[in-house]
């Protein structure tokens, strides 16, 4: 028997939205930490570190996110690691985000004028304060619009987690749609929820981009 789309169904979608937000947040925080490590490894003087992280980035940028989710979810299972779906999905998204954020931030670090590195070196600043106080604050500012752009992609990308049985917003929409036989209405609501989440971020990103452009034009 079909039901009509009411408050209960909307509540179910909101539950899905919560998981979407949580998953994106975990992926972004995990990916932020991992990405920082990847970016620093990519610009390090160690050829070995650069090669390894280069291969890692190539792998995760060169395969669909869907495949990555599959391989990690079922792959970890085959290795005897029976993790709850959400943990496996969080690991997959973290690895995915680390690769992309690492590459975005590597580009930003390398975009800084050589003189910034030289001035920091000439002052005797060691690696840690050189990166933490001089290089990264500037690089992350340059990279902010691209970082926000990636976050928006990441939020939408969480819909793929449905493939391993994770009930986030898109999957919740599918379930409600099957119950109510009103796919157009349900998915319009689902789309609106995604839009409400992503659009302010995009807007914020382009505002920052404008501000940086004005600052560098001066």
């Amino acid at each position: 028997m079909g039901t009509t789309f009411g408050l209960g169904e909307l509540g179910f979608l909101i539950q899905g939205l919560k998981w979407t937000v949580l998953l994106a947040a975990i992926a972004f925080v995990g990916g932020g930490i991992g990405g920082l490590g990847v970016a620093l490894a990519r610009v390090s003087t160690s050829k070995c570190l650069r090669r390894i992280t280069g291969g890692y980035i190539a792998l995760f940028q060169g395969t669909p996110l869907l495949m990555q989710l599959f391989v990690i979810y079922y792959g970890l299972g085959l290795l005897g690691l029976m993790l709850p779906a959400w943990v496996a999905v969080a690991i997959a998204f973290t690895l995915h985000a680390s690769a992309f954020l690492g590459e975005i931030w590597r580009g930003a670090i390398e975009a800084l004028p050589k003189g910034q590195f030289e001035a920091a070196r000439a002052l005797g600043l060691h690696y840690l304060p050189r990166m933490r106080d001089v290089i990264l604050p500037q690089a992350l500012r340059i990279a902010l619009p691209a970082t926000i752009g990636f976050l928006v992609q990441l939020i939408k990308g969480t819909s793929l987690a449905a493939i391993v049985g994770f009930i986030e917003l898109a999957r919740a929409g599918q379930i409600v749609s099957n119950q109510t036989y009103a796919p157009l209405l349900v998915f319009t609501v689902v789309g609106a929820l995604y839009f409400a989440l992503c659009w302010p971020l995009s807007l914020y990103g382009s505002r920052i981009e404008g501000r940086i452009a004005r600052a560098t034009a001066r």
């Binding site: 004028p113 001035a119 000439a122 005797g124």
Partner: peptide, 19 residues
Amino acid sequence: DAVRSEVGMVFQNFNLFPH
């Protein structure tokens, strides 16, 4: 490190930290 902390350098393009 020992040498750099005793040697000051001024560059053509200033290289101040803009942030």
